[in-house]
Simulated scan of single mutants.
Amino acid sequence: MGEPPRVHSAGHVFRQIVQRGGIKGLWKGSIPNVQRAALVNLGDLTTYDTIKHLIMDRLKMPDCHTVHVLASVCAGFVAAIMGTPADVVKTRIMNQPTDENGRGLLYRGSVDCLRQTVAKEGFVALYKGFLPCWIRMAPWSLTFWLSFEQIRKMIGASGY
């Protein structure tokens, strides 16, 4: 955009954050980030196992790569569905302007941000960025679950 860089090194940005928001500024956005991580992992872990069993039982398929790929894609999709609203809230909280004490000027917390977003922009606003989120999560989910299944087989862990 033709502007000079705002950040010159990790140490530089560390000092800027502490200068603007104190030590507490280093943790800005940590609560919504943990909330997001919990939702994403909940969606990914429960969906993979549930869909894997469903495919194997209903379609009478063996525990194979095809089942793992299908379950992984579904798990990534559900993780994106559950995580995108938290991503929106997390991003808004982390990017909001703050006062001299580091307190947000727009939102009091995650729930307040969620309420304001839905009230002002509608429920669909919570899914801004869904497609890029899923495009990012799908390969991760696929890589994780295929690796998990291979490691499980290599160590002789029982299947389902």
Results as ranks from 00 to 15, higher is better:
M1Y: 12
G2C: 12
E3K: 15
P5T: 11
R6S: 14
R6A: 15
V7N: 09
S9R: 09
F14H: 15
Q16L: 13
I17N: 09
V18H: 10
V18T: 11
Q19A: 15
R20I: 09
G21I: 02
I23Y: 14
K24R: 15
S30A: 14
I31C: 03
P32R: 04
P32F: 10
N33T: 11
A37T: 09
G43F: 03
D44I: 01
T47C: 06
Y48H: 00
D49S: 10
I51K: 00
H53K: 09
H53D: 04
H53A: 07
H53W: 03
H53L: 09
L54W: 05
L54Y: 01
I55S: 02
M56W: 02
R58K: 11
R58Y: 05
L59M: 13
L59Q: 10
K60D: 12
K60G: 03
H65D: 08
V67A: 04
H68K: 01
V69L: 15
V69G: 00
L70M: 11
S72Q: 07
C74M: 13
A75W: 02
A75P: 07
F77W: 11
F77V: 10
V78K: 01
A79C: 06
A80D: 01
I81N: 00
A86V: 07
V88F: 01
V88R: 07
K90L: 04
R92I: 01
I93D: 03
N95L: 11
N101R: 15
N101P: 01
R103I: 04
G104T: 03
L105Y: 08
L105S: 04
L106M: 12
R108F: 05
R108Q: 12
G109Q: 08
S110T: 11
V111G: 01
D112P: 07
D112W: 03
D112T: 05
C113V: 04
R115D: 02
Q116K: 12
A119G: 02
E121K: 10
F123P: 00
F123I: 07
V124R: 12
L126V: 03
Y127S: 03
K128Q: 12
G129T: 05
F130P: 00
C133W: 03
C133S: 07
W134T: 03
R136S: 10
R136N: 13
A138W: 06
F144Y: 15
L146D: 12
E149S: 06
Q150L: 14
K153S: 14
K153R: 14
M154H: 10
I155D: 02
I155T: 12
G159S: 08
G159H: 09
Y160N: 04
